[in-house]
Design a protein around this nucleic acid. Structure first.
Lengths: 126, 126
DNA sequence: CTAAAAACGCAAATGATTTGCATTTAGTTA
DNA sequence: TAACTAAATGCAAATCATTTGCGTTTTTAG
């Protein structure tokens, strides 16, 4: 099943991948159709194995469901690279929200935009 | 100029609106085309007057650029209603990220998912 | 081995958003 | 006020990531 293949790719990636990233990666080894990629991805999401996050570029990124520590994305607005961080103190924010608004927060996603160290260095050289 | 009209609608709305929300609202008073809505919206975003945020439903929501306190969205996964909150302690998180990864965070967006008080009440009545 | 289910591929459909182009409106100058 | 140019608008077609219908192939259970 190509789903397993896709799962392994996501598993071994340090960063969240788009459907197209995955499609390209799989194609290097075996033949596959984009619909199959999407169907597998949706299936993995449904079974809770992976997580789908829509970024501000409107594209879905897939990554392993973080069992213990969850992750958030750092997006460099210069080179567009994405990084992950587990830094997050939402727990306390969620509590505060619940207390002040009565809204029960069950999950959240954060996207940080900025400039990565590499681009910062390059920019300072100009 | 219909852009001003659209701006006022966004200004007087308590919650972020989609292009379609705005289109429908404007249509109640004057005639307008969806492309005009999108063009006006893009123009307002470019001039920094309003802010565009892509939610996990992959749809763009528009709201006033928060000059002083910025806002984040609470999305009820039951009734799909969206609320805003200004509760956010990202400042300290951003600092931590910069210190630990060197990534310069310039902006961020958070989407909280959960159950709103109204739905919670209805659910508990079943 | 055989029938039903699951996985696949391919092409067409979707839906929000964008864009090209022709037309109307607004603004400016002579 | 007339004449001209730029900006705003409408309409239809184009985009692009993602989904879906349908026919075919592969896998699985009995």
């Amino acid at each position: 099943m190509k789903k397993d293949y896709i799962f392994n790719i996501i598993k071994s990636s340090k960063e969240p991948l788009t459907a197209d990233d995955i499609y390209t990666l799989v194609l290097k080894d075996i033949n596959i159709n984009l619909s199959t990629v999407y169907r597998s991805l949706n299936s993995l999401v449904k079974q809770g194995t992976i997580q789908k996050v829509i970024h501000q570029d409107k594209i879905a990124y897939y990554e392993l469901t973080n069992t213990n520590s969850h992750k958030h994305t750092l997006i460099c607005d210069v080179c567009k690279a994405t990084y992950s961080t587990s830094i997050c103190d939402i727990e306390s924010i969620s509590k505060k929200i619940k207390k002040e608004t009565g809204f029960d927060v069950t999950s959240h996603m954060i996207e940080f935009h900025g400039v990565c160290p590499k681009c910062k260095k390059e920019l300072s050289n100009k």
